[in-house]
Structures are given as structure tokens and as C-alpha cells.
Amino acid sequence: MHTRAVAVTTTALLGAALLAPVSAARAAHDGDGPVVVAHRGACAYAPENTLAAVDKAAELGVDWVENDVQRTKDGALVVLHDDSLRRTTDVEEVFPGRAPWKVRDFTAAEIARLDAGSWFGAAHAGARVPTLEQYVARVELHHQKLLLEIKNPELYPGIERQTLDVLANQGWLDRRHVSGRLVVQSFSADSVRTVHRTRPSVRTGLLGAPAVSELPAYAEFTDQINPSYTALSLGYVSAVQAFTGPHGRPLEVFAWTVDDPAEARRTAGYGVDGIITNRPDTVREATRTERAASR
């Protein structure tokens, strides 16, 4: 799967990176800077992980959106970042006696009653927590691409297979989607490995910045290494991209979460393949400007 042994030194990896082929994402977007991913939808402009945030990303012309998936008490998959409903819904008012308001303690019907938009502003009052089915349908409506994060998999045994089943039922595991419109990621290496074993055709991402010495093992089952932008360096990005992932392409690096234009230009300068941001319009403009200035 990759041609370098585990014992290869970091120095050797950096040298090999100079000869590594360009990743699929970078090749597809050459001239436009890194792929820009709308974090939780365009969540600087609409309530995170709602259909309104997907719509806003589409309005801004952003191809990729990122979301988070959790599971309800009765087994439905919903799109929500926190394992608690408290921060982004009115659950405390609707269900005052059920602290700490964990997602897994509420049914899908109960969650569907909650207002997931008023906290963001009156204009979004009445927005709902979408199910995964509703979310991918909206992404499909806009012909967008999806970076899906399996959140807290340790809380939801079997969520990897269930997520893949929903995606399959929604038509998202055909060749057209898995070849360029879908990546499933997690902070849990075990979760990412499970996704790869269950559906080898699906591209995967590991959130975090593992040591270079650990990359050969991860390259067996993940296509992306997606760290915080604060963990990046030119050397680290080059080292990651020197490895070949399970689909025969160089590992990609998608950095999160970058909103500041200067930081976006700096991050793009490291050679990352993608940038995850709450302000995709700002980052897109900043990175295109950086690319134009370097010509």
C-alpha cells in the first residue's frame, strides 16, 4: 500500500516528499489554492450543522461542506457537533428536567421538536436539528460534496456501519460519490479503520496530527491526515504527502479550523490540500490571492 518501511527516518521522508506525486485534491484545484470546506456548513453565517448552513455554503459557491454525526436514544442519526443538545438548541426550555441533555438520551421525535436556530439569531428561529438523511439530501440538492465526521464513536457502538448504511440508502456510496464527493473522518483511528474495512471504496480521514513514525500504519486505512492548523509545518505536510494511502494516491492534509485571512495564506503556503473554515468565502479569497501573488 505504501512503499516506505516503518523504520524510515523523518529526514528521508521529507526528501521523498519532493518527488511525491500531487494529490487528487491539489491537482483538481491547481490554480485556485487548497480545497475550501465549509465547517459545519457555512457556520459563521447560519446556525451550525443545519440545513440553512448547507444552503448558505451553496449560496457562497462552496463545493465541500463538513458535518458531525451522533445517534439518538432510538437509534436515529442526527447532525450535531456536541454530545449535548444544550448549546445549540432550546432543549433546557422544552425538556427542563432532563439534564444534562445528552443526544443519546432523547428520541429523534423529541429532538425534532427543538429550535436549533434561535441561539444564532432571530432570523433563524425554528431551524431544526437535521437527520443524516435530511442533511445528505440537501447536500445532494446543491450538488455539493461531504466531509462527514463520526463524532464520539465510543458513545455509539456500531455507528460506523449505521452511517454507511444511511449513506448507501441515500445513494451516496455509488462510484460517482465515493470517487470524489465523500470523505468520512473521525478523531478515532479505530473508527476510521472500521469504516475502511466495512466499505473499502470510501475515502477516509483521520483527525489529528500523528507522529511521522506512525504514518505508515495509518496509510493502510486512511486517505487524509487532518490536523489543527496550529500543528502544521511545511515539513510535516510534506512528510504526510510522501505516503500513499489505501486508494493509491498520496495522503492528503486538510487543516482546521482557519478563519483569519493571514492564517489562511500561511496555511496554504504549507502545501495543504484543503482548509476547513467557518468563513469559506474569506478563506477562498485569501488563498486565491496568495496563489496569484506567488506567480
Rank of each mutant, 00 (worst) to 15 (best):
V212S: 05
N278V: 12
T267I: 11
R113I: 03
A27C: 10
F221D: 03
L146Q: 03
R113H: 15
V240W: 01
K102Y: 09
V253L: 06
R113C: 09
A189L: 12
P96S: 09
R203W: 08
V36S: 03
P34A: 11
G61I: 11
Y229F: 14
L51N: 00
R295L: 12
R203S: 04
D82V: 08
Y218C: 04
R104T: 07
A99K: 14
A189D: 10
K56V: 04
A24E: 12
S188M: 09
V166S: 04
A53D: 01
A24Q: 13
S118G: 09
T72P: 02
S294H: 14
A58N: 03
I275M: 06
K151Y: 04
T107H: 12
R203I: 05
V79Q: 01
T88G: 02
F243W: 05
V272Q: 01
T277N: 06
A293G: 14
V35D: 02
H2M: 08
A20E: 05
G117F: 00
Q185P: 04
K145E: 05
G248T: 11
A28L: 14
W64S: 00
R288W: 12
Q144E: 08
I225C: 03
R284T: 15
R71Y: 04
R4C: 05
I225P: 00
R138T: 07
F254G: 01
A123P: 04
D115C: 06
Q70N: 12
A109K: 15
F187A: 07
A27R: 14
G97F: 11
Y218P: 01
W256T: 01
V91W: 00
E66N: 07
H177Q: 08
R203P: 00
H39I: 07
F243D: 01
R87E: 13
A99H: 09
F95L: 13
A293W: 09
L182T: 02
D223Q: 10
D260C: 15
P153N: 11
S228H: 08
